[in-house]
Simulated scan of single mutants.
Amino acid sequence: MSFIETEEQKELRKAVSELGHKYGWTYLLEKAKNGEKTTELWEEAGKLGFLGVNLPEEYGGGGAGMYELSLVLEELSAAGAGLLMMVVSPAICGTIISRYGTDEQKQTWLPGIADGSITMAFGITEPDAGSNSHNIITTARRDGDEWILNGRKTYISGVDQAQAVLIVSRMADSKTGKLKPALFIVPTDAPNFEYQAIEMGMRSPEKQFTLFIDDVRLPADALVGSEDAALMQLFAGLNPERIMASAMAIGTARYALDKATAYAKERQVFKTPIGAHQAIAHPLAQCYVEIELAKLAMQKAAFLYDSGDDWGAATAANMAKYAAGEAGVKTVDQAVHTHGGNGLAVEYGLVDLLAASRLMRIAPVSREMILNFIAQANLGLPKSY
């Protein structure tokens, strides 16, 4: 692993940053206020090859890895134009299909995911399961050559802009009788598949939804991968999810820090820029340190994942998500505080990040569940849940 990025990676950062600043936070804010989607930004990012940079070249992708995809989301977020569905569509769904899908599934879905013409959502969380994915009640059963799905999902992002949802369900193991995970591609226009928006207290172009899956009938080829290896296939998508969540948190923290430092240089009280005072300068410097540490953790996780070290990537991705979430919350809070009352004014571009920054600690996995994982997997402590 090199701490110096290649020329291609540097050029990618520059190009993505230019695209992000072309749109910026005012674009996202207006879209959220008007109940609209970031269609223009999403489509342009797709045409430029940014959305599918991690997907195989033979299916229209860039042939790079999770490092490059996380780089894209970090730079967009640092420009105030982060795209939440990048965490879901190319990172989770695109990765799982490219690694475990059939040739037909790859040809059907990956080119569109790569160029942005297809968006795929991901459905795992349930009302009564939460962080306990072993308690999922959405089930799949065979009916001749078809499958029938039943269940509920909640807090599923971007279903209204997706053509399909990759649903995590469970099916009976014919040998043991126990339920085992299974992944299915469910078109959003499938009969008996319905979704309802959840009213959220933060403004975002991407909405959250509850899914109602009642006797949804699917063809045999809706199943992704092997019936006997779905747990491994599921985690192949969850590590990229954590890496990309880290990228969005880090980019958002960079955006907030840039706002705060610019304000601290310009704002004068008693004829002195407020940034000259250690009470302002030191907390911002500490935020910078913590952002850079989180970024190193994220880059390590992406490197391990791209190297094929799934177990090493799991630990690293969880730690990166923890560090990035903490750095993001702290930096947004400090940026608002640096602005004083102006931090709560919409025109300064920070107040909407207060609610969004809390999400960095909660989703897609809470910091407490990350600490549970580290305690058990890395410290060898007894399982507590």
Rank of each mutant, 00 (worst) to 15 (best):
S98H: 00
S98V: 08
E74W: 02
L55I: 00
G52Y: 11
K31R: 15
E57I: 15
H21Y: 12
M86Y: 12
E58S: 08
S77I: 01
T39F: 12
E30S: 14
A91S: 15
L28D: 10
Y59T: 02
E43W: 06
A79L: 02
P56E: 02
I96P: 12
D103Q: 05
G35S: 13
L73S: 03
Y59L: 02
E36M: 15
E58V: 01
G20C: 00
E68T: 06
K37I: 01
L76E: 03
L83G: 06
E75S: 09
R99G: 05
E44A: 10
L69E: 04
M85R: 10
S98Q: 02
V87F: 09
C93K: 02
V88D: 12
K31M: 08
K31A: 13
G49L: 13
L19V: 13
L19K: 01
L19Y: 10
A79C: 04
V87W: 08
Y23D: 08
A64P: 05
A32C: 02
G52R: 11
L28C: 09
I92A: 04
S89E: 08
V53R: 03
I97G: 06
S89N: 15
I92D: 04
E75A: 00
S70C: 03
V72R: 08
G63M: 04
G52A: 13
K33W: 05
G62M: 11
E57C: 10
G20E: 08
L83V: 14
R99T: 12
L84I: 15
A91G: 08
K31D: 03
I96C: 06
I92M: 13
M85V: 11
E74I: 07
F50I: 10
V53C: 06
G20D: 09
E104Q: 14
T95F: 01
G62L: 11
A78F: 01
Y59R: 05
E44K: 04
K31Y: 01
L48W: 09
L84T: 13
G61Q: 10
W42G: 12
V88C: 07
I97T: 00
V72E: 07
S89Y: 11
G82D: 06
A79Y: 00
V53L: 10
E75L: 04
A78K: 11
E57M: 13
M66D: 06
E74V: 02
A32Q: 01
G80F: 07
H21V: 05
K33P: 09
Y100T: 06
G80W: 10
G80I: 00
G80D: 05
G60S: 07
A91W: 04
R99V: 08
G60K: 10
H21D: 12
W42S: 13
V72I: 12
G49K: 12
L76Y: 06
S77A: 15
L71A: 00
G62T: 10
G101S: 03
K47Q: 12
L83N: 06
P90C: 05
G20H: 08
I92G: 01
F50A: 07
L71F: 00
A79Q: 05
I92H: 01
T95M: 01
L51M: 00
L83C: 10
L19C: 09
T95N: 09
T39R: 13
G65K: 01
L84E: 11
G80P: 03
G101M: 03
A45V: 02
N34H: 14
S89I: 11
R99M: 11
F50P: 11
T95P: 03
K22V: 09
M85K: 12
W25R: 01
G94I: 03
